[in-house]
């Protein structure tokens, strides 16, 4: 069963083509990684899937729904962690959890969310006083507040220390066990290798390869995913600068 579907997406900003005829599908309960160099179009792609941007052409379906037209339904079942977004600085962790939980009819308990991202001891700290990594973990917790059936995580563990990264990986594995569909934008090859069922390699706004992590390594004739990434997605690097 297909949970998330993007078909022939196009998006341009002025003269710059950000996404150029991109298609992909994510099965129910699947973890799909999205890899690509900076400026390859990853964030624009996930923002279109999340319904934050409308594609110039093409169509998106999340659990059979159009994220722009069926916004009120999609927001109930899709959790999103954005790369460039912050939260009310003067509110504490507990206050923010209460706010975001209030948006959903059957939210996950606050304790459980804190436990999932390892912030149990920080509930009375204001958002502006959390470290960067803790802010990011809270943002992930809020994306999970409504018991979503699908989750988009943009830069899951960028900036987290090794222990926090491992904790987030465990969280993703728990979600996978619950059959939650996950789209994971990442720069970390070890993370993608461990968590993702399949990986979409994006370059210059197109999917240049879509396979399992080991499939990509084999396709590129490389030793590991790092090398495969450079071999498959590095071609456009000179142009993107």
């Amino acid at each position: 069963m297909v949970a998330i579907e993007a078909e022939n997406l196009h998006k341009r900003y002025g003269d710059t083509v950000a996404v150029d005829d991109l298609s992909l599908q994510v099965g129910t309960g699947e973890v799909l990684g999205i890899l690509g160099a900076n400026g390859a179009g990853k964030t624009t792609t996930v923002e279109m899937i999340a319904g934050l941007r409308t594609p110039d052409h093409g169509r998106v379906r999340v659990l059979g729904l159009d994220p722009v037209r069926d916004r009120a339904q999609v927001r109930q079942v899709l959790g999103v962690q954005l790369q460039e977004a912050t939260l009310h600085g003067a509110l504490t962790v507990a206050e923010l959890l209460a706010l975001y939980r209030s948006f959903y009819p059957d939210p996950r308990p606050a304790e459980e969310l804190l436990g999932l991202v390892g912030l149990v001891g920080r509930r009375d700290v204001r958002f502006e006083n959390l470290s960067g990594g803790q802010q990011q973990r809270l943002s992930i917790a809020l994306a999970l507040a409504g018991r979503p059936r699908a989750v988009i995580l943009d830069e899951l563990t960028t900036g987290l220390d090794p222990r926090a990264r491992r904790q987030m990986w465990k969280t993703i594995e728990c979600l996978r066990d619950e059959q939650v569909t996950i789209v994971l934008v990442s720069h970390a090859m070890d993370e993608v290798e461990r968590l993702c069922d399949r990986v979409a390699l994006i370059d210059a706004g197109r999917v240049v390869a879509l396979d399992t992590p080991s499939g990509l390594v084999a396709l590129a004739g490389a030793e590991n995913l790092d090398e495969a990434f450079v071999a498959l997605a590095g071609k456009g690097l000179e142009d993107t600068e």
């Binding site: 934050l52 927001r75 954005l82 977004a85 912050t86 409504g146």
Partner: peptide, 13 residues
């Protein structure tokens, strides 16, 4: 500016 509205835009709020 801080993206708080953007963050809320991906919730039911």
């Amino acid at each position: 500016r801080s993206g708080i509205l953007r963050r809320l835009a991906v919730t039911p709020a």
